[in-house]
C-alpha cells in the first residue's frame, strides 16, 4: 500500500514550488553559467555532493522537502545577517559568492533527484 497522505503531499507540493521559485531566481542562470565556466561547475558539483551527504538518507538522495528546508534555512539566516539574493542578471558568475553557489547546488540536486 503506497499511502498518499494529504498533509504529506501538501508539504511536498509546497517544497517543489519553493524549489521551482529558487530555480527561477538562481538555479537556471547559475547552471547556465556553469555550463560555460568549468570551475563554477566543479564547485557546484562539490557543493552538491556535500549537500547530498548532509541531507540525503543512507540509500537515497535528499528529498525536495529536505532541499527546500535547507534553502529556506540558508536564506533566512543569511537574510538575518544582511545578505540578499542578488538579481540573476547582476551576478558575476565567475566570482559568485559561496552562498549563491550553494543555492545553485541545491537547485542542481532538486533537478536531478527523482524523489
Amino acid at each position: 500500500m503506497t499511502p498518499s497522505p494529504a498533509g504529506y503531499s501538501v508539504r511536498l507540493a509546497a517544497a517543489r514550488a519553493a524549489l521551482a521559485d529558487l530555480a527561477d531566481r538562481v538555479g537556471t542562470p547559475g547552471l547556465a553559467a556553469a555550463a560555460t565556466l568549468p570551475g563554477l561547475l566543479a564547485a557546484v558539483d562539490q557543493h552538491a555532493a556535500t549537500l547530498r551527504d548532509l541531507l540525503g538518507e543512507d540509500d537515497r538522495g535528499p528529498s525536495p522537502i529536505g532541499l527546500a528546508g535547507y534553502a529556506d534555512g540558508l536564506r533566512d539566516m543569511a537574510g538575518d545577517l544582511g545578505w540578499r539574493l542578488p538579481q540573476p542578471e547582476q551576478v558575476d558568475w565567475t566570482r559568485a559568492p559561496w552562498l549563491l553557489v550553494r543555492l545553485v547546488a541545491v537547485c542542481q540536486l532538486a533537478a536531478t533527484t527523482s524523489r
Binding site: L55, Y70, A71, D72, G73, L74, G82, R102
Partner: peptide, 19 residues
Amino acid sequence: IAEHARAYSAGQSDARQAM
C-alpha cells in the same frame, strides 16, 4: 516535518558559517 526541520537548521548553520 522532522526532515524539514533538520535541513532548515543545517541551512541556518551553513549560512552563519558563510556569513
